[in-house]
């Protein structure tokens, strides 16, 4: 599919100024990089040793997937899987905290999980960043800040909570004035401007990488659990 287009741009001053005038004719194409293009060339030979080394390291099959997991806003199966994985992994696993919700960022999920075998490499593509998991205790009045954030962003991966027309709800109430959220150090440190994490009541750094959580949960599930639950209703 080549889209051809023509434009004419004029630069320089007009005739009256007696300066030189240029006429620029533009032709634009979008060239898709498809499988019909031969790739047996010197570039491929250059990649080959890196590829085989990585394949050995990243080719391990962790699980199977009967579905394509795609991220989306406000909701997506990949959003739900990632947030669920995080919440399930940390629920009751760290003493001194009881996370009842997980929050990630849609932008941070970097790849789809495709139907078929799920490899270690696929999880690296999903979560290439070395983000550490952080447990954060927040005052309950921050729920309205989270609600406001989601109303603007249009949706982020959440588990253990839902959003409905401007309001954010925890699915279960742990009682008291605070609640524990499990998230990434990137978001906790102000990434994507989630300022509601500022001045938390308490923080626990887990030293666990988010990617390692995904790897563990994928393995444990064997067949990835699919949920297209509508957790965010804008």
């Amino acid at each position: 599919m080549i889209n051809k287009l023509f434009y004419i741009l004029f630069i320089g001053a007009g005739l009256a100024a007696c300066s030189s005038v240029s006429e620029i004719v533009v032709d634009a194409d979008l060239v898709p990089v498809t499988g019909e293009i031969d790739s047996t060339n010197r570039i491929d030979s250059l990649i080959a040793p890196y590829r085989s080394e990585l394949k050995e390291e990243m080719g391990t099959v962790l699980a199977q997937s009967a579905y394509d997991f795609v991220k989306d806003r406000p909701n997506g199966a990949l959003n739900n899987w990632s947030a669920d994985a995080l919440l399930t992994f940390f629920k009751d696993s760290i003493s001194g905290s009881d996370p009842i919700m997980a929050l990630l960022n849609t932008g941070g999920l970097r790849s789809t999980i495709n139907k078929g075998a799920v490899t270690l490499g696929d999880i690296f593509k999903l979560m290439p960043f070395d983000n550490e998991v952080v447990l954060v205790k927040l005052p309950k009045d921050r729920l309205k800040d989270i609600a406001k954030y989601i109303s603007i962003s249009g949706g982020e991966p959440i588990a253990g909570a839902h959003y409905d027309s401007g309001q954010f709800f925890l699915n279960e109430d742990a009682g008291g004035d605070t609640f524990w959220v499990v998230t990434s150090d990137y978001l906790f440190n102000g990434g994507d401007k989630m300022t509601f994490f500022n001045d938390p009541a308490e923080v626990i750094w887990t030293s666990v990488l988010l990617r390692d959580v995904f790897v563990y949960v994928a393995k444990k599930q064997g067949n990835l659990i699919y949920s297209d639950q509508e957790r965010i209703k804008l």
Binding site: L15, C18, S19, S20, V21, S22, E23, I24, V25, V26, D27, A28, D29, L30, V31, P32, V33
Partner: peptide
Amino acid sequence: VNLGRIDFEIESKGIKQDA
């Protein structure tokens, strides 16, 4: 997944000389 291509044809018209 794509390569962008934009071709420019720049025609300098020696207007000053003509003038």
